[in-house]
Write a protein that binds this DNA or RNA. Structure first.
Lengths: 193, 193
DNA sequence: TGTACATCAGTGAACGCGCGTTCACTGATGTAC
DNA sequence: TGTACATCAGTGAACGCGCGTTCACTGATGTAC
């Protein structure tokens, strides 16, 4: 039975490559803008092999959404466990509202790159819930206003990135991000790092 | 030359019907989720006639985005000109963050239903700029913090609706909307209507 | 160590289908006299 | 008022193409003895 081990590991690695490729492509071009063919090609494979890993494109979409957002949630948790509260919050908010995040579509937060598209797909939508809760929990811990303030802050961050990506001039985008950042961080006690 | 008048009026009315049908369908199913065929059928026509009105689907997308958001901007302006500031702001924010707005996808604000999709399409994206500016101007007039606070408020409203549409349970959606609403309206002087 | 066999991840041709777009046409509307 | 003609919005068949999915196959990897 040992022979299966190697096969299994190899297959799992390939599967991860497919998810990673899809993750970047979906965020860049939208879910309907990327075919199974393009995903497999980006993963260095041919399209036929896809169905050895996933039952359907829809299943890939759900897994990609879940995996991407779970990674973000884990990053936030790690930051909040490692740093003092005020500095953790600043770091999370600053990196989210960084013009670099806005420009880097393929690594951008799924909520801002694919939010409305995922909301229309029941499987993918369901896959997101847990990670959203984790992100809210991190913010609720760091903000004096607790959970309501955390929900408002997350909303503000998402909306600012969506809006900034719609802005044609870089100046306006930065103005939006700056205003949202000041707004979220204004909710902090007076001992920022 | 009078004969052209009637023809022109009729054609303009048909064109408006196409835009209206597309406006609802795109918001419900996403831009790539709706074909020219479906749009024309919803407008009571056959697909071939489309190209007598628009040079391409992309042109329709741009016009639909622009028209929908312009209508929203006009509504906000009318409210802010008609009512006293605090009550105007409350009305705008409450109607935006109403669970009914979240549920009514086909009439939902373009920024929340199609934001990321439009951001990837240069023509449509360009068509949105003016209306966003008008909406920001309305909020800036009503909020003591002016333009920065207006940008933060609009961001918060957009993000809350996007997030609420991702929530599986209605309870969570309402919690998000309520938190965002309290957050935006907290920026008001103490004389609410 | 060497040969015969089994497993199975990945290949690539093929499927039916719907897309965006084109175009020759039809038939209702309005004009000319 | 009535007939012959021009306009043009809308029709529907057809185009080439890429989609999601299926499937008979290949060939590298590991097993048995």
């Amino acid at each position: 039975m040992l022979h299966m081990r190697k096969h299994t590991e190899h297959k799992a690695a390939t599967r991860a490559r497919i998810v990673e490729a899809a993750s970047a492509l979906f965020r860049q071009h939208g879910i309907d803008g990327v075919g199974v063919d393009a995903v497999m090609h980006a993963a260095g494979l041919t399209h036929g092999g896809f169905y050895g890993h996933f039952p359907s494109k829809e299943a890939l979409v759900a897994e990609v959404s879940a995996a991407s957002l779970a990674r973000a949630a884990t990053r936030w948790e790690r930051i909040s466990e490692t740093e003092r509260p005020a500095s953790a919050l600043t770091r999370i908010v600053e990196s989210y509202l960084d013009p670099a995040h806005v420009a880097d579509l393929e690594r951008g937060c799924v909520l801002t790159t694919l939010g409305p598209e995922v909301a229309r797909r029941p499987d993918a939508r369901e896959a997101l819930g847990r990670s959203v809760e984790r992100m809210v929990a991190v913010l609720a811990d760091l903000l004096p206003g607790g959970r309501p303030q955390a929900l408002a802050a997350l909303s503000g961050m998402i909306g600012a990135v969506v809006l900034a990506r719609l802005a044609e001039q870089a100046g306006l985008a930065e103005e939006i991000l700056g205003a949202a950042m000041a707004d979220v961080l204004a909710g902090l006690p007076q001992d920022a790092a």
